[in-house]
């Protein structure tokens, strides 16, 4: 798994030509992609602007999961729970007949997701491996039922929000989130911010320790690391960021319903990061776009598009376990340097 995990560590000494390659890969290509994205609202139709906005929100969601799966070695199958909590927090706090303030609802949504992630983390991180996968799935399902069955979540129809939140400073509207172009750029900025945030965290002592836990948890313990605390930090940060993505998602769609925290959502986001390649951050973003593209193409082909998706997943696992980033690496740099597995 995760053969590219050590790529994002420029410190680890490489020869000069490799450095220019690194520069190209770490700076030039992402900037190019960013510029391309920035042109979407200008060139594309309103429909595509909204589609790409949605995909960028999913990319933030996928980034948050990559911190867990790709950098901490925790395969969570319940990550949609925190996405959903962020969305519900927004929907529940929005008044019926007027716009909510972003300054109020956003911190509340992020806070709710953070608290939920920390609490769930205390339980699920007592387990490992297969147990962890099942327990995260089960906890997500618990939240699903809480929102689905109780009056609090208003049942299977969920909650509709009639107004976009205000983003105001005093009386001045900074960004009109109801304007799909402005919302697009807002989300794009948030995606870049989330990416840079994770990069910074990963380069910090915490991030390095998390990576160490993924590669060799036992040795981290014997080196004196409080592994549980580190995992809980990772789980909480990832859940918080997922909640943020959920908030944006609910702002865009104007509703929160139980389906957004269903296990399908958890499976799909896991699929995104694997499509792109785990432990690369870029892979998570690329995976979100590829996933959306697959979804669009398959839906255009047949109403039974999930069949095609399922078959694609199976073929992917059988023949391309390292995801697209590994595939790209294999094509671009012919003689691939063999890395031993992390595990």
């Amino acid at each position: 798994m995760n053969r590219a995990s050590d790529v994002g560590e420029p410190v680890l000494g490489a020869a000069a030509p490799a450095e220019t390659r690194l520069l190209r890969r770490e700076v030039v290509l992402p900037l190019f992609a960013l510029v391309l994205l920035a042109f979407v609202p200008i060139v594309g139709s309103a429909f595509y602007t909204e589609v790409v906005t949605r995909v960028m929100i999913l990319a933030i969601f996928a980034l948050s999961l990559d911190l867990l799966v790709g950098y901490t070695g925790l395969v969570s199958f319940g990550h949609a729970a925190f996405f959903g909590i962020g969305a519900y927090a927004y929907a529940l706090l929005s008044p019926k007949n007027e716009a909510a303030s972003l300054w109020l609802t956003l911190p509340a949504a992020i806070g709710a997701a953070a608290i939920a992630a920390a609490l769930v983390g205390v339980f699920v991180l007592r387990t490992r491996g297969i147990y962890f996968i099942m327990v995260t799935l089960a906890f997500a399902q618990m939240f699903y039922f809480v929102f689905h069955d109780t009056d609090f979540g208003r049942g299977s129809d969920g909650i509709t929000v009639n107004f976009k939140p205000d983003l105001k400073l005093g009386d001045i509207t900074l960004i009109d989130l109801g304007n799909s172009n402005q919302f697009f750029y807002f989300v794009l900025a948030m995606l870049v911010a989330a990416f840079l945030f994770l990069r910074t965290v990963l380069a910090s002592p915490l991030g390095r320790a998390l990576h160490g836990i993924k590669v060799n948890e036992h040795r981290m313990l014997s080196l004196g690391y409080h592994v549980f605390g580190y995992k809980l930090a990772s789980f909480t940060i990832a859940g918080t960021l997922a909640g943020f993505a959920g908030y944006l998602s609910a702002v865009q769609s104007g509703f929160a319903n139980p389906e957004i925290l269903s296990w399908h959502q958890s499976g799909n986001v896991l699929l995104m990061i694997i499509l792109g390649g785990t432990g690369t951050l870029y892979g998570a973003i690329g995976g979100a776009f590829v996933f959306a593209l697959l979804e669009q193409v398959f839906e255009a082909l047949t109403v039974h598009w999930q069949l095609l998706l399922g078959l694609t997943i199976i073929l992917l696992v059988l023949f391309l376990p390292g995801g697209l980033s590994e595939f790209v690496a294999r094509v671009i740099r012919k003689p691939v340097r063999e890395h031993a597995d992390d595990e």
Binding site: D6, V11, L12, P205, A209, V215, G224, H339
Partner: peptide
Amino acid sequence: FPTFTVFENCRLAAQSREPHPARIF
């Protein structure tokens, strides 16, 4: 840590003495 450099292996070991997990920036 097989996929890390020798330096990173030892740096991670040394980091355990002043871990600073909260300084995420």
